[in-house]
Amino acid sequence: MLHVLAYRKLIQGPVKALGRYSMLLIHAGSALPDFSTYRKNLFSQMVQIGVESIPIVALAAAFSGAVTTVQTSYQLVSPFLPKSIIGSIVVPSMILELGVVVTGFILAGRVGARIAAELGTMRVTEQIDALEAMGLNSIGYLILPRVLAGILMFPVLYVVACFVGISGGILVGHFFGFVPAGEFLQGAREFFQPFDPIFGLIKSFVFGFTITSISCYKGYFTLGGAEGVGQSTTQAAVSSCVFILVADLILAATLL
């Protein structure tokens, strides 16, 4: 009996979930040519997911850049090391990791939870059934524009995060006397690798897809009433964060 329960919980459940997730994405992908179905929703989702996230992403990135500068200068105080080394550490850190991961975590909470709550509420109040009953492809209408908006807008937010984060680092370093702006930038230039921003952009596409697709999946298949919506919302945010970390490791191990 215990074997059966363990089998259901550890193997059958995740395999079923993966199957349903894949089918959802295949369905969404097949609706791609039908642009008129999701055009309007795509633009509104791009605003909600992208434009409206700029303030919180910029705030988090600014503090991340500033704190990284302060901590790097604290760890590397030595007369034998040029201060420019701070810039050479802070900038790649922002471009390779902090800019994209901090943005990812913020979007997992802000966007992932909202998507799951919206779709979950639509599911339990039969609004998704109503769309289907009308003869509309609900996956094409609801899921596809959200996932596309995530893939398109995450890189934009990543660029904003890097720009603001690095600027925060420069300003704090300069005005708090850790490193003059000129030396910071000199260090950043010396150790700059052209592949770093490309790698960051690749990660941002993957994270944008991960967050929105997982959240759509959790919301679309919500069961039950208000409790089910609550569970989906929490699971969307938590699963998105976990899979961001997994994707981060896989991408770093394979592409760097």
Binding site: T121, T125, E126, Q127, D129, A130, A133, M134, N137
Partner: peptide, 23 residues
């Protein structure tokens, strides 16, 4: 097919229990 099913569904109007209005 799903496309044909959607065409069939357009012959139906459905009043759901709670209305299912798009909020």
């Amino acid at each position: 097919s799903y496309t044909e099913l959607r065409r069939v569904r357009r012959q139906f109007g459905v009043l759901f229990q709670g209305g299912a209005l798009f909020d």
